[in-house]
Amino acid sequence: MAETTTVPQTSQNTARRVKFVITRQDTPETKPYTEEFDLPYRPGMNVISALMEIQRNPVNANGGSTAPVCWESNCLEEVCGACSMVINGKPRQACSALVDQLEQPIRVAPMATFPVVRDLVIDRSRMFNALKKVKAWIPIDGTYDLGPGPRMPEKKRQWAYELSKCMTCGVCLEACPNVNDKTDFIGPAALSQVRLFNAHPTGEMNADDRLDTLMEGSDGIEGCGNSQNCVRACPKGIPLTTSIAELNKQTTKRMFKRWFAQ
């Protein structure tokens, strides 16, 4: 990438510095605290490259040596969902958070809706458990060859593809005022996946099972309070609120069907 080839000499960039205030936490049980860092500026740097700089030279703004900040990241191109964190108050991907576009000091904190493992590393297990719960897959295995499935109309495929961009990053759950310790709400991401798999011609065969899980217990679709922060926060631009409203329609129909057809 261009930025790696244009790294200036260390002596030249003493003029510009970048200030970071990072919320840290040593273990899942200990209390969080903030630590300030003063880093040399490099053109095109993002929050991840800043964290890498701290890793190379773990010294805080007071000049004291400290443990390097822990974080998670993989793809560095906003498709894997691993580097979600709260940057200047907004949950987003750290890899696409360019320092040039951020107000300083840059405040970085873990998405505390999830259990914090250490520093910026969070445990997103609840999202994957939610996908299992709603059966966010298409069952194609049988004891014999089931043959080819029905074709998907191209028009449907186009909007369904948008839903399939979900990377389970957890930003929508962090943005949602109804995902917290006081509720069991499963969150927008898993709901949108129900819409995706219910739209698929083969997945549709299990549509009712998925809808039923959204209507049982206390973690289902009723947890949505229409703040619509999720659709604003989603880094992939997934129409989450349209998915939720569409599922509201599907579950409502399912409810009446269950009442009157049994």
């Binding site: 943005a175 005022p177 917290n180 006081k182 309070g225 703040s227 604003r232």
Partner: peptide, 21 residues
Amino acid sequence: IAYQAQPNLGHFKTERNWRFI
């Protein structure tokens, strides 16, 4: 329902979030 919400207007000052609160 009101008790269950955890307001975050500070970071999401959108019209819909205002209406939610």
